[in-house]
Design a binder for these strands. Structure first.
Lengths: 220, 220, 220, 220
DNA sequence: CATGAATGAGACTTCATTCAT
DNA sequence: AATGAATGAAGTCTCATTCAT
């Protein structure tokens, strides 16, 4: 083994957990947890089967590590970013949502949504974790801004939870799509980044709208 | 085996495929295809392992039958129903989407979305089938109405495909949710039927809106 | 069901056991006992799976019936025919062997040899039966004639058992061949009937031979 | 698992394929391919079920490996040995056949004949392989010598192919016998090694013979 | 008698996990 | 720390046999 290799090996030792998580994310998202073989994960990370078990005690623990890992950072980062945005509720939402989701959509982490959707019923602990670490904070964040917009008269007095879902669910959905049908067939009529912006704008328009009478009466 | 069971043998012969499909849908949606054992499907349908293979030659064929079966009917039915709705594009969309999705959401067939999202990358034939039989017709149907609304001046001149996705993706997403997180934890802040109506209305408002000036001037 | 069919059915009822045996022989010889499915046998005999079990209580009993059936007749017939042949031991053997084996070689019964060779170790009862009903009588018959030929000075004083094997084993072997390699590839350089005659003549020549000196001296 | 066994792990790694082939040959010959369970083969080789599949991807591939393995060597070796024999065609054949077949008859490899006869119709690829690797070379070898003997006037002008079969088929047949009936019952009147020599001599006598007139006239 | 739906033991094969090296 | 040979539980699928019709 050449000195370069040894150096390489040393350098990579600390990177191993991350490399394994990356490999696992890709494969779990692509094939599902049950249909992914532990050896495949190891191989994609460039190590042997045995090494995987040095870092994670079982395939199931690896799954939980994957889900935990790719979410924790992003959420905090998202919340932090939100705090910095100035302006109206509409501007704030536009800024928050479009940036954050565009980045997420373009990163492998977007696969975590598919992973959670797919595996949560087989591993209920994931549910609690995901609800507490992802959904609750994110929902609190967005609904807070919507509520504020309503309080300020910027938005109509809609049902807040529904409005949040209207805003966010399509963004989750295109992440799922990217890793399922979108990965099989040329991404037929769905341009993720463009859609994110258009969608947020469309819903914000709905929230903001003074519903126009079909035949508006002229001011007397 | 009880005498009553035996009496039913003939009568149940024709019902078997449907019973097996129902059992398979439930289990595949709940646990995923790979994590569902063929014997479980048989047991839930009330037959033995061997009987399953009398009707479907392999677990994979069973999966394809499940996906094919629960989609074909609904789509045609949805299109037919759409043709009957009178009135404006907005009324038409409200009528089409709210009814159809509320029914689907409340039926086990809503699980097919999870199944497709989950398994399509492992069984690419599903992709072609699903795209051709479900997505294309449904998208054509909805986008036709939206385009018509724009042509009539009822809707603003938005990007049609994006608008359709804004309308439909959340409805798909709550079907997924119902069979993943929603099935684990008490359906925390998401009432499906209520959301469907509110969401469609919100987006239609966004489509219809005369964008109001942030600070409207009083009539002089 | 038409009257003709009913008549047909009646007429075939007595033929069933034979038809089942024929079908079973073909299939057992072709695929081997373990690799032949009971249903295939039934299908080839033109009856249903259940009917097979009306005539034979198990697949194994069917095998024994097949082996027993195709041997009993032929052997007796062969012995009877031998008794009629006149002439020298050489003529007798030629007559007996060539006729009998040519007929056997051309009939499906030739497959029984393959069947016995193949299955005897899994069903040892077959061994006793086959040894007693086939090998012993046949060997007795042929070795009797050879011994007689030696006694008369017609044959050299060779080892009788070996000579019998030299005469008979190739004939058995081409029956095996016919149902194994010979059935896969165009019967490459082996014409059964021609070989039988040539072989018997060649061995009889060996038995008869006055071993000639390589360079025979002329009579002085 | 005993410590001693563990010590052998590495050492046995390279021996595994051969051990598995040996076990498989024995069992396939004894019970037939279809009636042999993969686990039995593994057990006889002293490993677990899973280990078998580490070396051979399926039971069928194992069969092909068995057939390929035990034949390739012997044939080449036989041909090589033949080239060294001096003397007349008769001497050459006697030397070639008796030695080679006696050795083969006494080794487990003799079972391959039964295996091929038995399984060739279920796995037609075996036919091509066996014909090309075994039958063709062997037949070419023997028929070449016979033809040479005829050309030299040492043998009579018989049909060469038939003569080769008369020489060789009984030798194949006693190999089959050894692994079927001969394995069930005390080797009733058939001593392999003795027979091989006697048979070759008898047929060579037939080939060499100046056919004596039935009633030879005395030299005056 | 004849049928064929149903059964379930059993075979092949996979793969998560272990552990000597 | 890293490897990969080995294991055996578990899953898919087959098929001999039964039995109500």
């Amino acid at each position: 083994m050449s000195p370069a290799d040894l150096l390489h090996r040393r350098r990579r030792k600390e990177a191993r957990p991350q490399e394994l998580l990356d490999a696992a994310l890709e494969l779990f998202v692509e094939k599902g947890f049950a249909a992914t073989r532990a050896e495949q994960v190891a191989a994609r990370a460039g190590v042997s089967k045995g090494t995987l078990y040095l870092y994670y005690p079982s395939k199931e623990e690896l799954l939980k590590a994957v889900i935990g890992h790719y979410l924790s950072d992003r959420i905090a980062e998202g919340a932090a970013r939100a705090a910095q945005f100035p302006g109206s509720a509409g501007e704030l939402l536009r800024g928050m949502l479009i940036d954050w989701w565009t980045q997420l959509y373009d990163s492998p982490a977007s696969g975590v949504f598919k992973l959670v959707i797919t595996e949560v019923r087989n591993f209920p602990e994931i549910a609690d974790f995901y609800a507490a670490q992802v959904i609750e904070p994110a929902h609190r964040l967005v609904s807070g801004v919507v509520r504020q917009g309503i309080a300020r008269g910027e938005f109509r007095a809609v049902d807040v939870d529904s409005a949040v879902h209207s805003l966010v669910l399509p963004l989750v959905m295109i992440c799922l799509h990217r890793h399922s049908l979108g990965a099989c067939r040329g991404d037929w009529h769905l341009d993720g980044s463009a859609f994110i912006a258009r969608h947020v704008n469309l819903v914000l328009d709905g929230l903001t709208a003074q519903v126009a009478a079909p035949n508006p009466l002229p001011c007397p």
